[in-house]
Each structure stands twice: as structure tokens, then as C-alpha cells.
Design a protein around this nucleic acid. Structure first.
Lengths: 344, 344
DNA sequence: CTGTTAGCGCATTCAT
DNA sequence: ATGAATGCGCTAACAG
């Protein structure tokens, strides 16, 4: 048996209710219902209900150029950082009758392009991108197509695309000031990839915060990771420990995954945290409070970021908004047990 | 400035290429390209490329009754169990040019209905549901609409809907046999909600496995949780420890979250794991290998489950498949450090 | 207040 | 091999 959609259409309802399809359309639509006689409207509604009529938004979209669908680009939903963001986005979209088309890009340009094409073909009303990088070309293409785009957790230097992020500099300062307050002065930074705005800005923030605290930042106190992964974090941490000649007493990591990598090194070497080394993470991913020791980290309101981003694309549906570039949310330090006074 | 889609249509291409729109349609479509003169086809393709033509799948869908979109229902993407499943689904869908419409239901009937309606209105070609419960009514409605539906991580008693799951009984047997092999005989079960097929089947599996091992299951060796959360797991674990009069030496939990709840109780009471109590989880969620102690658990191939489910909806696009009900994948025990020989 | 008409962008049947 | 015509389901502009 072939699959046959038994779709009840607006015409079926019209026939049953003895009115013109146009009237049915008006009666069924909240916006235009006032244009039709209440009694007629009521009858139409009843018939629609009885027949089990389901409006076909696809057809509607063809006419109205609105699909009530937003494309969401995420590097990898498997990275614990992103589910809360997605959740925030969805909750907000649901409120307004929108639905999210979600894809994982793996930060792979090809995959990214494929997905964007697919979404554009589906006429999404807007994009939210949490991907670290988005082809400049793709970006321009989306912009040219007049489809609103909002960046999340990253931003463009030139502010040409609205973005919702946390103030990375302020956040890192929170982390640095915390360990400084604990008495640390030899503080290292396991930095994220510098070609990503997040990694770069946190590194800048680290240097600034250290300077503000009157502490020097030598070459030996920073190591860069190629990716935001435990493995890279471990590598960088090991190098840092070796390079500093054992003088480092605290590390501020570019994100939680990198911090976990640091944990691995300490465990390997039989060093304790925070006894030997204090570690501060970044993001406050789910479950980092259950690590041993529970990770002190900068909490980023991921869910709220998602919600604000969704809000923004929704607003942008009404047309461009002047003077809009970056929305900065406040980070918050969560002190747990991976930080303590320096040893000795 | 209003938002105006500068959509290049098939007609624009036709005009430029000096052919009829119908011909453009044929040339652009892989399936029908053979019907048109290779040279003409080539020219059309070039013009389309030059003009930046993007086919409008929405319009196409109106005609073909295919949107190449699959609706995915998830209770809460924030639960670490689900991202891998979603990832598996998406990867598989991407291969076939499909995209996922993802929603969180919170297992809330109202939210669920809203979402299903929205997705049906968007004419999704199929559904994959990882939600614990789906209104029987909704289920029937979807079935009646002839839209393929595949269940994931759960199944219906009557097998009326195809499902992809792991063999819960076999899985729990793995867990029980492991601790039995370690020498335990006083084994408790922190059971999941019994109104969920997963919770129920694992409980059944526990009883069977214990019986097979020749071990008794008393009232004192099982406690039920109302939800799959740490809090409930902690409550049940505490009750279990109290009820057994300190004789229990191992606990098999209904899932990892419940197991984590057990960890909490041990920590509160200053008891060690696995020294005092061995604990086995279920699912092998991300990061449970980083808990202290790393959790011994039953690994469920979530990603594969997602991929197989996606495969199934895709196959179902061709029409119903006879004799299909449940696809069982193999679980695997991952022994880490939360289990050891019984004390004393 | 309601019917009529046209058309969104595309695929497809029927001619030619 | 291609052009012409039709309609998917719906909304909107225009009459009346």
C-alpha cells in the first residue's frame, strides 16, 4: 500500500460548511477571524474540528514567505556545552509558534555548507549559529538573502552580525581575581584556539586581568590548544607544568574541557588539586560539579544565551534593527573545590 | 526596509536560459535530467549557478508531498542521554538529504501535543520519538495520518509501533552477573519508574537475573523511583540501605542518574564505593567515566540506536514494512571502578 | 461580511 | 526534446 496522505484540505471544510474556501481560511486564522460573521466562523470551526482538519503550514508558507522555522547550527550537540543553549532557544521559539531545525556542523566547512543550503532550501525564517566558525562566504550569502542571523557564543570582529555572548574578558577577570585573592601569583593559562573568538578573547582577558593584578605574564605561563578538548588541555597543562619549573600554583583554563584535561595530568603525575595546583574552568558545563574535585568555574548562562538569541532572531523578523551588534550577558564565578590557597 | 526575499525562481533561470520553466525543472532534477538535451541541461545548470538559484523545497514539497524533514521528539536534550541519540539520527538523515526538526517535550502531554501538531502542520515525513510516554491518542493520530513513527529507547507492549532499543533484560543480567561474579549475594535494585517501559523492563530483568543466579529478591532489596533523577536515586538508595539493615553490598541502578544519586548518599554517610558498596549504572552517559569513582555501567550504543531509528523511518518512507516491531541492539558492560568485591 | 480570482514555486501530464 | 497547462493548499487583493 502506498503512503497516501488523507489530508483534509480547506476545500473539504468549505464544502461541508457550505461556504467558500476563502471564508474558511479567514475563519480559521486568528488574525482575520474578525472579518467573518461569528456564526459562520463558529460553524467553520466546528466542521474543521469534525473533519480533523490540519492546516498545511507548508502551503501557507509558500504564500506568506514565512515558515515559522529557525535553523540552528551547532558544532556538536554531544558537547555538553550546547544542549542548554539549544534548550533556551527552543523554549523561546515554542512560545512564539516557531520550531527549530537543528544540525551539527562539526565545524566542518563542507558539512556546514550542506546544512545551510538544506535549511535555506527549506526557507527558514532565520538562523542561529553557535558554530565557532562560519565561512565568511556563507555568512555573506545568508546576509544577502536577507535572512536574519544571530551568533551565539562568539562574535565577529566587525560587529556585522548580531551576537549574544558573555563578556569573556570580565569572566576571565573573575577567575584570575579569585585565585589572586586566594594568594596565588604564579598563574598559568591553558588557552583555547586563537583562531576562535572565544579562545582569543579569553587569552586577552587573561593578560589584562593579570596586568590589572600587577602580575607578569611570561611566555612560560601560557600554552595554546588547537581544539577545546580534554586531550589538548592535558597536553598544554603538561607543557605548562614542565616549562614553569614547578613554580605554577594555579591554572585558569580556556574552558571546562581543557580544565578536565588538566585534571588528567595531575592524576597521571600523582599531584593533588587544589593542594598542588588550583584549577579554574570556564562555562560550568553540566556535571562539572560532580567531578573530583568539583570544578571551580565561570558560570555562563547558556540557557539564557539561547533564549536571548532566539528572542533576537524573532525580533529581527520585523526587519533589521539599527545599532545592534553584541549583547553581553554577565558571567558568574562558581567557587567549588578545585581552587584553594597556594602550596607551601 | 522590509524583509524581501530576493528569491531567484525557476522562472528567472528559464528566462535567462531561454527555455521553458518546465525544462528548467527537469534539468535541475537529477531524476528527470535524462529527459532533456544534455547541452540544454548544461546551459540551464550554468545559468542557475550564475544566478545563484536555490530550489525552494517548500514549494516542491507542496507538489510532491515530501518535505525531507523528520520530526524528532526528545524529553529534554539537556539530559546527557539524548545528545548521542540525536547525533546518530542526524548523521544518518544528513546522508539522505533529510533534516531533523527537534523538540523537547519534557514528557509534558500539552507540550508534546503542541509540538506534534506543529510538526504535522509542517508536513514532516516521519517521526522519531525518544519520549518516555506519548499519548495513546497522539500515537493513533500520527498512525492514522500515515506518517511513519519510530520509537527509540522504549517500546509499546503491543508492538504496534516499530521501536529501536537495547535488550534491557540482557543488559541488566550483564550487570547482575558482574557483581555476582565479584562475590556479591546481597544485591539491591534502585528501580526506575514502573510506568515507563524502560524502568519496568529493567526491574523485570533484575528479578530474572537474580533468579538465574539463584539469589533471592526480597521486598527489602528493591526501591522504586518516581523519576530518573539523582534526587530520586538518592532517596531510593538511602531507603534501601536503611531497610536492608546494612547487609546490602551492591546496587544495580535503573540508570546512571540514579546511580549518581547513590553516590551522593554514600558521600553523605561517609561510606566508600566500592569498598562499602558496589554500584552499577545503566546507559554509560558521557562523563560517567570521570566521576569519582569512575562508574561501572552498562553501555548502551545510543548513537547507533539513533542511526538505526533514522534508518528505519527512512525505509518506512517507501511504505509499511511487514512483520517489523522491535529492533534490539546489544548492550555491553563497561567495568570501571565503582564495583569491587564485597566487604568483609 | 463573503465570494471571486490570482498566484506563491515547483513538478508533471499532455501536447507538439 | 521541449513547450503549455494544470494544480499542490493556502492567502490576499478585490469585488460585491
Amino acid at each position: 500500500m502506498e503512503r497516501v496522505r488523507t489530508a483534509v484540505t480547506i476545500r473539504d471544510v468549505a464544502r461541508e460548511a457550505q461556504v467558500h474556501p476563502g471564508t474558511v481560511s479567514r475563519a480559521l486564522n486568528e488574525q482575520t477571524r474578525t472579518l467573518v460573521n461569528p456564526e459562520t466562523a463558529e460553524r467553520v470551526l466546528q466542521v474543521a474540528e469534525r473533519l480533523g482538519y490540519r492546516p498545511n503550514r507548508i502551503a501557507r508558507g509558500l504564500k506568506t514567505n514565512r515558515t515559522y522555522t529557525i535553523g540552528v547550527l551547532i558544532p556538536d550537540i554531544t558537547n555538553p556545552l550546547f544542549p542548554p543553549i539549544l534548550r533556551g532557544i527552543e523554549d523561546r521559539l515554542l512560545d512564539e509558534g516557531y520550531t527549530a531545525l537543528v544540525v551539527n556542523t562539526d565545524n566542518d566547512p563542507v558539512r556546514e555548507r550542506t546544512h545551510v543550503e538544506a535549511m535555506r532550501a527549506r526557507q527558514v525564517d532565520g538562523f542561529i549559529s553557535a558554530t565557532a566558525r562560519l565561512d565568511r562566504e556563507l555568512l555573506d550569502e545568508v546576509g544577502a538573502a536577507d535572512v536574519p542571523l544571530v551568533l551565539v557564543n562568539r562574535s565577529l570582529e566587525d560587529g556585522s552580525v548580531p551576537a549574544v555572548t558573555v563578556d569573556d574578558r570580565q569572566a576571565i577577570k573573575l577567575a584570575v581575581d579569585h585565585v589572586v585573592g586566594l594568594g596565588h601569583s604564579r598563574i598559568g593559562h591553558v588557552a583555547g584556539p586563537q583562531n576562535l573568538s572565544t579562545g582569543h578573547r579569553r587569552y586577552q582577558g587573561f593578560k589584562e586581568a593579570m596586568a590589572a593584578a600587577g602580575l607578569p605574564v611570561s611566555e612560560d605561563s601560557v600554552r595554546f590548544c588547537r581544539t577545546f578538548t580534554e586531550e589538548e588541555g592535558a597536553r598544554a597543562c603538561a607543557e605548562l607544568l614542565d616549562a614553569s619549573g614547578g613554580e605554577l600554583t594555579a591554572i585558569v583554563a580556556g574552558n571546562d574541557l581543557l580544565a578536565i584535561g588538566c585534571y588528567d595530568v595531575l592524576e597521571e603525575r600523582g599531584l593533588s588539586c587544589p593542594g598542588y595546583l588550583s584549577i579554574v574552568g570556564y562555562n560550568d558545563m553540566p556535571f562539572v560539579d560532580r567531578l573530583r574535585p568539583p570544578l571551580t568555574t565561570v558560570h555562563v548562562p547558556q540557557r539564557e544565551i539561547g533564549a536571548v538569541a532566539a528572542d533576537l532572531v524573532l525580533q529581527l523578523q520585523g526587519g533589521p534593527i539599527e545599532g545592534l551588534d553584541e549583547i553581553l550577558l554577565d558571567p558568574e564565578l562558581v567557587v567549588r573545590e578545585s581552587t584553594g590557597p597556594p602550596r607551601g
